[in-house]
Structures are given as structure tokens and as C-alpha cells.
Design a protein around this nucleic acid. Structure first.
Length: 369
DNA sequence: GTATGCTTTCGGC
DNA sequence: TTACGGCCGAAAGCATAC
């Protein structure tokens, strides 16, 4: 049987690259795209930075003030995020990429898997040529660079793309998978974050090769059946996940930072009322109803709490959202002593149609035995 | 014991 | 010196039904 040939396209420092394209004047200096929280002058976090800024130690998620201190003596561009614009750019690039694939799967705003097995007839050489043409096309039509990984499955394609950045193209053929993976640190595998990495380190597992040598049954004992099996398979480059189009989002949420930390329910609801309106507007535009309503709270110590409530019947009214959020925040405040720093609203468990107008009960007798 | 559904946390981007 | 976003989906953890 022919091997699958999977391509992962990952745009380089996406938000910052789009800002460079918008204003080429900043291209040769550090560019830091920031989410300003509005609490004070420089409060907020770094979303993305270009490679020049990264050389100075600026990283995603870092406080803006810290990034500024690292770039103290340098002429740098600090810019606010413009999600809507980035989404527009993303849609254009994804439409182009889709044209190069037998099957297509967008992941996040700046990544996509392309299953090209059929059109390259299982040939990794042809896939590499196709990938180069794709890069050229994206460069010409969108003025953007990306890094591409090619492998026999999504797992390997993803790790391959990370191997050379920015503007890279890395091919890992089936017979190269083992030697490619063996020396890499375990946290290059999707699903191995800080927690799993620490646990593995204590078990003497540092590289993917170490993981591959580890007894599979013991992995399952330690991490549970699903995760343990996944880790074992991943360590030897096995992954059967299909490339498939993703549907609509499964949840819609908004979160915001409060002007100051508080436990005052009225102050909290004053802010979340606006978030409810935004979520409600999104829901209205998508034409869906939701069964679950949740709240998110980030406390003073940056720890996160969430609460949610699921209704039997789908709702879509702003009032339901507001009322439920109020109840949930009241409950949360009773269960914790810390002040709240950030607050959020989330709806999920969507129902397509909300035509349950009357007398559902008349159906119950017929369908139940 | 297994399947299913809900709530909460984790972690990638 | 300190400094700290806004999303999303996946998985874990738990309860309940069969």
C-alpha cells in the first residue's frame, strides 16, 4: 500500500509578519505584537515577535514591560494586535493552500495540514516539489513566508516543520522517521507539555528515543490507557489521524482584564455584561443556540477557575446569558477567597436549530419503548 | 465493567 | 526589580446509567 504523504504548512511569526508586510519600514528591526490589557501603560502580554526581537530574548506570552526592558537600547516596534485583519489574511492564504490538497485541515489561524497522497502518487520527492511551489505561490500572492514539514502522517509532518524555521522546508521519508525522532526532546511531541515532560524526566525519559525504549505497559500504567498508548505510538512515529476539514467552532468565549482586582460582584458583572453582549452578538451572527454557559476567572495569583451550567433546552437570549453568568460568579466568589483579575464568558454545546417551539412531549410516547 | 455525559483544567498558538 | 492575553480544542476527572 502507498504511504500517506502529509504536508504541514506553518506561517512564520504570523501576526508580526503581517505587520511587517503592512509597514515594510519596520522589517529590519524588532517587531513585537502585543495584547494590551488597558490596566496600565504597558500591562499586557506579547502575542508574537519577529525573529530579530526573539534574538533579544522576547517570547510569546511574556509581559510587555519585560519585552520592553529587553529591547531598552534598541529601536523596536511595539504594535497592538489586530485580530480581525489577521483573520482576513488567514482566510486568503487558507483558500490558496486548500487548492494544493486532496484533503485539507486548518489548525488555528496560521497552520494547515494538506493530505497530498493521491496527487503526488505517494512520492515524497514530488511532494517536496509541490511544497516548494506552494511556498512560492504564497510568497508571490500573499507576500508571506511559511515553514513546511512533510512526513508520512500529521505527527511527523508537524515536527518536521519545526525543524527548520523560518522559511524552511523539511522532508522526512518513512524510512527516516526513526532516526529523525530519536534525538529530539520529548516535548516536541504534541501532548507533551510541562506536566508530562516533568513526569517523564523523573522516569529518565528525555528524548523521543528514550520514550520509544520505555515499556509500553508501564507508560499506560502511569499516564492512563489513552495517553500512554498515544505516547508510545508517537515515540515511534505512528499516527493514524486523518486530515479532515474542521467544522464550526464548538465554543465561543470572551475574556477581559479588569481595571483592578476585585471581589465586588457588581463590578464584575458590570464588565461581564459587555462580554455577554459580544458573545451574544457572535452567537446571533452564527445563527446557533447554546446549551452550556460558562464563566472563567483568573485570580490575583494568576490561577484559573471556571464554572459552567448546562441547560436541557438550547437558549440564545442575552438575558439568559447574563443571569446565568451572574449566578455562576456569585457561586465562584463563595468558593474562593482571592480577588479576580480577569473575567470571561463562554458558551458551548451548540444546537443548530431552535425550532423546539411546542409540544415536544407529543413525540415522547412514540419513540420510547 | 463499560459507555456516556458533564465540569474543570491543561496547554497550544 | 517587577512585570502577565485571549482565544481555542483536548483531556482529565467525576458521576450516572446500564
Amino acid at each position: 500500500m502507498q504511504p500517506r504523504v502529509i504536508i504541514l504548512v506553518d506561517f512564520d511569526y504570523f501576526f508580526a509578519q503581517i505587520e511587517e508586510r503592512k509597514n515594510p519600514y519596520i522589517k529590519d528591526k524588532p517587531v513585537v505584537v502585543c495584547v494590551y490589557s488597558g490596566r496600565s501603560q504597558d500591562s499586557g502580554a506579547v502575542s508574537t515577535a519577529n525573529y530579530i526581537a526573539r534574538k533579544y530574548g522576547v517570547k510569546s506570552g511574556m509581559p510587555i514591560a519585560l519585552a520592553k526592558s529587553k529591547l531598552e537600547s534598541v529601536d523596536a516596534a511595539f504594535l497592538p494586535v489586530d485580530y480581525e485583519f489577521y483573520e482576513e489574511v488567514s482566510e486568503k492564504t487558507m483558500t490558496i493552500l486548500r487548492g494544493y490538497a486532496d484533503r485539507f485541515e486548518q489548525v488555528g489561524i496560521d497552520e494547515a495540514f494538506l493530505d497530498v497522497s493521491q496527487r503526488v502518487g505517494g512520492s515524497f520527492e514530488q511532494a517536496a516539489e509541490l511544497a516548494q511551489r506552494t511556498k512560492n505561490d504564497i510568497q508571490t500572492r500573499c507576500e508571506l513566508t511559511c515553514s513546511i514539514g512533510i512526513g508520512p502522517n500529521k505527527l511527523v509532518a508537524k515536527i518536521a516543520a519545526d525543524a527548520q524555521k523560518p522559511d524552511g522546508l523539511t522532508v522526512v521519508k518513512p524510512d527516516q522517521v526513526e532516526s529523525f525522532l530519536v534525538p529530539l526532546p520529548v516535548d516536541r511531541l504534541i501532548g507533551v507539555g510541562v506536566k508530562a515532560k516533568e513526569k517523564m524526566e523523573a522516569m529518565g525519559i528525555r528524548t523521543i528515543g528514550d520514550l520509544a525504549k520505555y515499556d509500553a505497559r508501564r507508560l499506560i500504567e502511569i499516564f492512563g490507557r489513552k495517553l500512554g498508548t498515544y505516547f508510545h505510538n508517537a515515540s515511534v512515529g505512528i499516527d493514524d489521524e486523518p486530515v479532515q476539514e474542521r467544522g464550526e467552532a464548538e465554543s465561543i468565549s470572551r475574556i477581559a482584564t479588569l481595571k483592578e482586582d476585585t471581589r465586588d460582584l457588581n463590578a464584575i458583572l458590570d464588565r461581564t455584561d459587555r462580554l455577554c453582549e459580544e458573545v451574544h452578538e457572535d452567537v446571533r451572527q452564527k445563527g446557533v443556540s447554546f446549551k452550556s454557559i460558562g464563566i472563567i476567572a483568573v485570580l490575583t495569583d494568576m490561577s484559573v477557575r471556571s464554572r459552567s451550567k448546562t441547560y436541557e433546552n438550547p437558549a440564545n437570549e442575552l438575558e439568559t446569558l447574563r443571569r446565568t453568568a451572574g449566578e455562576l460568579f456569585e457561586k465562584l466568589l463563595n468558593e474562593s477567597e482571592l480577588k479576580l483579575r480577569r473575567v470571561g464568558i463562554k458558551v458551548s454545546n451548540f444546537a443548530k436549530e431552535q425550532k423546539t417551539q411546542k409540544r415536544i412531549t407529543s413525540f415522547l410516547g412514540d419513540s420510547e419503548s
